[in-house]
Design a binder for these strands. Structure first.
Lengths: 170, 170
DNA sequence: TTGGAATGTCAACAAGGCTGACGTATCTTC
DNA sequence: GAAGATACGTCAGCCTTGTTGACATTCCAA
């Protein structure tokens, strides 16, 4: 009863057993653990958590971004984000400047120290990603990206696609 | 300086820019959100969390598994798991039986009610997975799985590979 | 100019990780 | 049979990171 794989719009038919799908689900579970393992290790030494990593990543990605913007990318409440942001500002990793045109807004930037941590974290994560990409090969990478994109919610995919590189080239 | 892509063991060389790798990292982040979104919705209505889902999933996957075994798969402490397991047993979703050969062990099974919730959760998750697989196509699925496996830690990959289907075929 | 919307902050609570310590059966080994 | 190891449960307390509620500030439009 789970095998109703009706063909769609002339596309090649894919027969997907529950077992295949479950294997995919479990692969996602275990892989995500690996994906976060290296940054987690670095962060725990500095008594930060994954939430700090995410904030740092996206501030690096889009310097000058506002709290609100970060909020919609991260998908958490502003109170949750604020706690993380506060510690990062207190510790001198993030700079929070009152907006020039709209004083309600805060524009967020990494300090030198923040940028250094960002580099350490993303180096570790990229190393693993690079190793995985190389082990799997270029065709696999394309497929990997396609499946991941198809797995996102529509609004997440929009966020994802909207993330252009706004940093100056180093 | 980040472009040092020395070839390895005669393998085809893969040029991976930091930008490509970061896109992969972000894809992983957003996709995992989508991956957990549907079960999370269902669980929050029943005041359970992701931790309950994981326990239920792997008990379903390996009926009769022991607490210790579950512990090593999930990678959490027994105190953490115990809290979750206790509520599931209290609520009548999981049965915990003293081991037959080794009475120190507890063999874990889903009750009818537990199996019903498992079905609801995994149906939702499989639907999304199936849609993503179909949208991306069979070649992409293969690549997806290859990259995910390459991203795991060695011991996780062993856990992952060891997960055979021990349930009776339905 | 004033009321509503947007932005961000403070406070308090809950879930679910963690460590540490301990109790109790139940093997296993000497 | 005694001693130690193993499997499991539990209590206590901590931390991170989610949540909601209340509130101050700022902007904008009627």
């Amino acid at each position: 009863m789970d095998q109703s794989n009706a063909p769609q719009s002339g596309q090649a038919l894919l027969f997907l057993t529950d077992e295949q799908l479950r294997k995919g689900i479990e692969a996602m579970f275990f892989a995500y653990r690996g994906f976060t393992a290296d940054p987690d290790r670095i962060l725990s030494e500095k008594s930060y958590g994954r939430a700090h990593h995410r904030a740092i990543h996206f501030i690096h990605r889009s310097p000058g971004t506002t709290v609100n913007n970060l909020l919609s990318i991260l998908g958490v409440t502003k109170q949750s984000l604020n706690r993380v942001l506060r510690t990062l500002v207190e510790d001198g990793l993030v700079e929070s400047n009152v907006g020039a045109t709209d004083k309600r807004e805060r524009n967020l930037y990494l300090t030198e120290e923040g940028a250094a941590l960002e580099r350490e974290l993303s180096d570790a994560q990229r190393d693993r990603m690079r190793a995985a990409y190389r082990a799997a090969g270029p065709a696999a990478v394309t497929g990997f990206r396609q499946v991941l994109e198809a797995m996102m919610d529509d609004d997440m995919r929009r966020q994802f696609d909207a993330l252009r590189d706004t940093r100056g080239r180093s």
